[in-house]
Simulated assay, not measured.
Amino acid sequence: MAFHKNLTRVERARLAVTKLICPITRDALRVIPLTDFIFGIYISSRYRYVYIDNPKTGCTSLKSAMAELELRGRKSDLDPLNLEVIHYDSSPLKSFVPIFPKPTLSNLIKNNYRFVTFVRNPYQRLLSCYLNKFDNSTAKDNPQARRMPRGAAPGSFSEFIDAIIGQTDHDMDPHWRSQSINIHYSRVPYAYIGRFENYATDYVTTFHKLGIPADEIPTLRHLNKTGAGRASLHEFYDKKSQDAVYARYQDDFVNFGYPYELPD
């Protein structure tokens, strides 16, 4: 069941109970919207794990593989390469919303569900976001543009950085929100946090941590490439934008061990 922006009385009551019994949900909703919170959670009842989505870290490829694994051996018309199946309610990992009376995140932890996610160097992640959502976007109705401070797409990368660093985490889109906030870093006991920089290796390790035998791990398909990994960050960042990003996203640099210096 999907929760709507304008909650019904029953949904409000269920949410209130969830906040009482699940500290993770209660704390998360203090800093991010309910729709973002729910959208970012993918649950496998079959393999007993939770993937917390962190956009621009290879999540499309990983969620496609997870959907393929979840559907394997079952009669289904769902295509794990279909973006609706990968990202939205059609996903087999979206069978329920972790809001009372369904199991909450705290309840899933108590029941030994394993949590996994991926992170990325903040400098590269923001560049990937800009190139994918604004520089390369041809969509007339860009949902990410609506989350910009003025509700309009930025004209350049420097304009993008200048605009987002003043936003609160609540107002940010998940594609450029602090990764520490996106993945509830201080609240969730992760079994594994993969790194985009070591994607091929960490992709396999993620499934190993979930108890998936090596011969059952889906083949890695690199989906939704932006080219940011091949771009020189020095072409986009100057000292001002580098300092601004380091200051705004300092928790991510510290929590995940990324240095101040721009990657080569």
Results as ranks from 00 to 15, higher is better:
117 T>F: 08
81 L>E: 12
104 T>G: 13
106 S>D: 13
108 L>R: 02
82 N>M: 02
129 C>A: 14
74 R>H: 05
100 F>N: 10
129 C>L: 08
119 V>R: 02
92 P>T: 08
67 A>F: 08
126 L>Y: 12
96 F>Y: 15
86 I>Y: 01
78 L>G: 13
101 P>L: 07
108 L>P: 01
72 R>G: 03
114 R>V: 13
104 T>V: 07
105 L>Y: 08
127 L>R: 01
77 D>K: 10
122 P>Y: 08
124 Q>S: 15
112 N>V: 06
77 D>G: 06
84 E>V: 04
106 S>P: 00
111 N>F: 15
74 R>P: 00
87 H>C: 03
72 R>W: 04
74 R>S: 10
122 P>T: 07
128 S>F: 00
67 A>I: 10
114 R>Y: 13
87 H>Q: 02
119 V>Y: 00
127 L>D: 01
76 S>W: 04
118 F>E: 00
124 Q>T: 14
82 N>W: 03
115 F>M: 09
126 L>C: 14
122 P>F: 08
107 N>T: 12
98 P>M: 09
121 N>H: 15
118 F>N: 02
106 S>A: 12
129 C>S: 11
79 D>P: 00
124 Q>R: 13
86 I>A: 04
74 R>E: 06
94 K>T: 11
99 I>P: 04
92 P>A: 13
72 R>I: 03
117 T>V: 11
82 N>Y: 04
118 F>I: 09
113 Y>R: 14
72 R>H: 08
125 R>H: 05
80 P>D: 04
126 L>K: 11
114 R>T: 15
109 I>E: 14
127 L>H: 04
87 H>T: 02
124 Q>G: 13
73 G>W: 03
70 E>R: 14
102 K>R: 15
97 V>N: 01
98 P>N: 10
97 V>R: 00
76 S>P: 03
83 L>Q: 12
115 F>S: 02
96 F>I: 08
121 N>I: 02
99 I>G: 13
80 P>K: 04
73 G>R: 01
90 S>G: 00
75 K>I: 09
79 D>A: 04
103 P>K: 06
79 D>R: 00
98 P>H: 09
117 T>Q: 07
118 F>S: 02
83 L>V: 13
